[in-house]
Computed example of a mutant assay.
Amino acid sequence: MKNASLILNVILTIAVAVLYYLHFKDKQPEAAPATKTSTEAKGKSIVYVNVDSLLTKYEYFKDTQKVLESKRFQLENDLAAKGRNLQNKVAFFQQRAATMTQEQGRATEASLQKEQQDILAYRERAAQNLAVEEQSKNKELYDQIYDYLKKINAQNKYEFVLGYTKGGGILFADPSADQTKTILDGLNKEYQTKETKPKK
């Protein structure tokens, strides 16, 4: 969870930087009107989202975590079953070792060592595949959040959408700038719409 929170913080920081760039890239500097007050200049252009709430309440993230957790659990079960099977073969070999010829013993031992190496290689491949899938899901998460923020920014004109985590880089966040619920509701609504659409 802490790792996912850190990843989402980085993702939200990048999203903020891109939104800032998109917001200002086509604008030419203008002279500020003399009548503009300091409160008008500030406005509500900087808002934040509570990252922990986003992670615990965004349905896409929860569904993704369930899928990944299920795959981790399956992998652990597969490895445990392969490990038990190998242990049984080793125990059987040890019981019969005295009745085997030297050549049979060496061949069986080599076969067991190869099986052990195959299990280790399988574990390594499966862990790498799971890590790649997790990265892919984190990218999808980032893309969904970024696309949604970009879309709503057409109406709200936020300069920054910060990712806030208690104990993180932001020491204080005014609750009036908290857009977590609004953004979370919008993200969940979009996700539910995508999920209920018939798949082709």
Rank of each mutant, 00 (worst) to 15 (best):
S5Y: 08
S5Q: 15
S5W: 07
N9T: 15
N9H: 13
V10T: 14
I11Q: 12
I11K: 10
L12Q: 09
T13V: 08
I14R: 11
A15T: 02
L19V: 04
Y20K: 12
H23N: 15
F24N: 14
F24V: 08
K25I: 12
K25D: 04
K27V: 08
Q28W: 05
P29M: 08
E30L: 06
A32D: 05
A34F: 10
T35I: 10
K36F: 06
S38A: 15
E40F: 00
G43V: 06
K44F: 00
S45G: 07
S45P: 04
S45H: 09
I46S: 06
N50T: 07
V51D: 02
D52Y: 01
L55K: 05
T56Y: 05
Y58P: 01
Y58D: 02
Y58F: 11
E59N: 07
K62Y: 04
D63I: 02
T64A: 12
T64D: 08
Q65W: 04
K66T: 12
V67L: 14
S70K: 14
S70I: 09
K71P: 00
R72P: 03
Q74V: 09
L75G: 03
L75I: 08
D78A: 09
A80H: 06
A80E: 09
G83P: 02
R84S: 15
N88L: 07
N88W: 01
F93A: 06
Q94T: 02
Q94P: 00
R96G: 06
R96Q: 11
T99V: 12
T99N: 09
T99A: 10
T101F: 03
Q102L: 12
E103T: 14
E103A: 15
Q104N: 07
R106P: 01
A107S: 15
A107C: 04
T108V: 13
A110S: 09
L112Y: 00
Q113F: 03
K114R: 15
E115R: 12
E115D: 14
L120V: 09
A121C: 03
R123T: 08
E124W: 08
E124C: 11
E124R: 14
A126E: 11
Q128S: 13
N129I: 07
N129F: 03
N129V: 08
E134S: 10
K139A: 13
E140Q: 12
Q144Y: 04
D147V: 01
L149I: 04
K151A: 13
I152R: 03
N153F: 00
Q155C: 02
Q155K: 14
N156I: 00
N156W: 00
K157Y: 02
E159D: 15
F160C: 08
G163N: 05
T165K: 11
T165R: 13
T165I: 14
K166S: 12
G168S: 07
G169C: 07
G169T: 13
L171C: 10
L171V: 12
L171F: 07
F172P: 04
A173F: 03
D174W: 01
D174S: 11
P175M: 02
S176F: 05
S176V: 11
A177S: 11
D178V: 04
Q179L: 04
T180W: 00
K181R: 03
T182G: 03
L184H: 00
G186I: 03
G186Y: 00
Y191H: 04
Y191I: 07
Q192V: 14
P198E: 13
P198I: 08
K199H: 07
K199Y: 06
K199D: 07
K200N: 13
